[in-house]
């Protein structure tokens, strides 16, 4: 990967701004940024949603949060009571968050890039991203829950990481 391609990636503040725009449009409550993200935090009890970007830059955008946070996101977006939200609706809402943030990132990394449909895994701790390394991470508190947004760059031959 060239420096020019690296330069096209959003910085952490730019990624945070993209997330803030999504939150301001579709969710209630303020996101409070974590100044120094803990990259080693365990993903036990968390869900992960991601979209892949393929083109001049290839990688993926992931969103990780607790089950409680994911349910709160779905409750806000569907405007339902917590007891009414199904697992499918939770996955749908979290996937759409990844889709919106990833779509904005895609617009920054190159005109020829292709965005995948969102994927969601209910057990983030079980997920390994082979041949990918994390380049940018933003963490924020929302409704007493921690949300994490990361950009991963595909690197064939790399050992991979969480």
């Amino acid at each position: 990967m060239t420096e020019a391609m690296t330069a096209a990636l959003p910085s952490a503040p730019e990624l945070a701004e993209i997330v803030d725009q999504v939150w301001a449009s579709f969710l209630e409550g303020e996101l409070i940024a974590v100044p120094e993200p803990d990259l080693a935090r365990p993903y036990d009890g968390c869900l992960v949603a991601w979209v892949s970007i393929a083109g001049d830059w290839t990688g993926h955008l992931s969103v990780v949060c607790s089950d409680a946070a994911a349910r709160a996101i779905a409750t806000d977006m569907f405007q339902l009571d917590d007891s009414e939200v199904t697992t499918a609706e939770v996955a749908d809402a979290l996937g759409e968050i990844a889709n919106m943030v990833g779509g904005s990132v895609k617009g920054m990394v190159g005109a020829t890039a292709v965005l995948s449909l969102p994927q969601v895994v209910l057990d983030a701790a079980a997920l390994v991203s082979p041949e990918a390394r994390r380049l940018v991470t933003v963490q924020a508190h929302w409704k007493d829950e921690l949300l994490e947004f990361s950009l991963w760059e595909r690197q064939p031959g790399n050992g991979g990481g969480k």
């Binding site: 569907f78 405007q79 749908d92 759409e96």
Partner: peptide, 12 residues
């Protein structure tokens, strides 16, 4: 839209 929640948000 393939997302249920986005269809709902668009209508809303």
């Amino acid at each position: 839209d393939d997302s249920m929640v986005m269809r709902r948000i668009v209508v809303r």
